[in-house]
Design a protein around this nucleic acid. Structure first.
Lengths: 165, 165
DNA sequence: GCAGGAATACTCGGATATCCAGTGTCCGAGTTTCTCCGG
DNA sequence: CCGGAGAAACTCGGACACTGGATATCCGAGTATTCCTGC
């Protein structure tokens, strides 16, 4: 039970991109510098976000990344699934069908109760993530963050953003 | 986001042990044989369950494992935490404090909103697991399982259980 | 026949190799931009 | 002065090493049993 640490970077990156003016982009290298992480590695995760239609990428000079849709239409679940993959955390290996007492596969048409319980828990987990939007996180950020941090963030964006024609 | 596959074996093992008569034990090797998994490796996880006070171990001949308390007092969460460890799946690395715009640590007294949201989701996850007891799983098992599987299970226990004096 | 003791066999527990997903990095493909040259 | 073609620079995208944790295994510590010997 352990999430990839790229999830955290991906969420932070998405929040930074949310502050861009409409249509502007930010290079992946700028995002990496802003967060103090390896640029080459951050691109790996941003790529996943692009594949999940959460971000859009613009190639060439004046290119970079931007959100593919509004902050209120992007949930934490979208980001987590884009990085971690859609498969559930608990994978039933059907060990009930192994061992000396195994029957023919047709005898196991009913789903495994353990698997069902674990998936039920994970549905609750995902439900909370799904109802938490990026807009909620941003709202909390501007309310709690140090004003200097906000000012730096704005200045950084002003300096690094690119506006393709 | 991936659970150890030992979790599944641990839950199945606990359910098997639940069918033992009061006070009887079952060797780890019997549990491994029943599930068709490596005995040496299963012991590693059973050890974790013992450390978490979910199982009791009895050494020597006629020894083995048994549940440390009633099936209605053991939740799925107990088992999962015993195997996976208590730390949450999402570990906030505080990357907001990294990078060129970092401030002194005292400026980050408010908790990170992202971390808070992820932990909120995980609390929902754990809440579902906590309210699912072993007794619930057993109830579903006897209702859905093939009668032959139940018969084999009973015969196996009858054959392998040990009764320390 | 009975009691005591030592050897035994079986159990769990911890320390030790092996493997794979996640981590980290690099180089190549593609596109826009800028510059330079010709008209 | 203007238009177009070419080179350049910057971007993202996919392919290639490295590392930590999970997986799998073995050998040692401990205890109840069992057998044997002496009384």
């Amino acid at each position: 039970m352990k999430l990839s640490e790229g999830v955290e970077a991906a969420i932070h990156s998405a929040i930074v991109l949310a502050d861009l003016p409409d249509g502007a982009t930010l290079p992946g290298s700028a995002l990496a510098e802003y967060h103090g992480v390896s640029g080459s590695y951050l691109l790996k995760h941003l790529k996943g976000l692009v594949a999940a239609k959460i971000l859009e990428s613009v190639p060439g000079p004046a290119g970079g990344y931007r959100l593919a849709r509004g902050v209120e239409k992007i949930s934490l679940l979208d980001v987590v699934l884009a990085i971690e993959g859609p498969q559930p955390a608990f994978r039933c290996l059907e060990i009930r069908q192994k061992g000396p007492g195994a029957l023919e596969p047709a005898a196991y048409n009913k789903p495994c109760g353990i698997n069902a319980a674990m998936l039920r828990a994970e549905r609750a987990y995902r439900a909370v993530l799904a109802e938490t939007k990026l807009s909620d996180l941003i709202e909390g950020y501007v309310a709690d963050a140090d004003p200097r941090a906000v000012a730096f963030s704005c200045a950084f964006l002003e300096r690094s953003q690119r506006m393709p024609r």
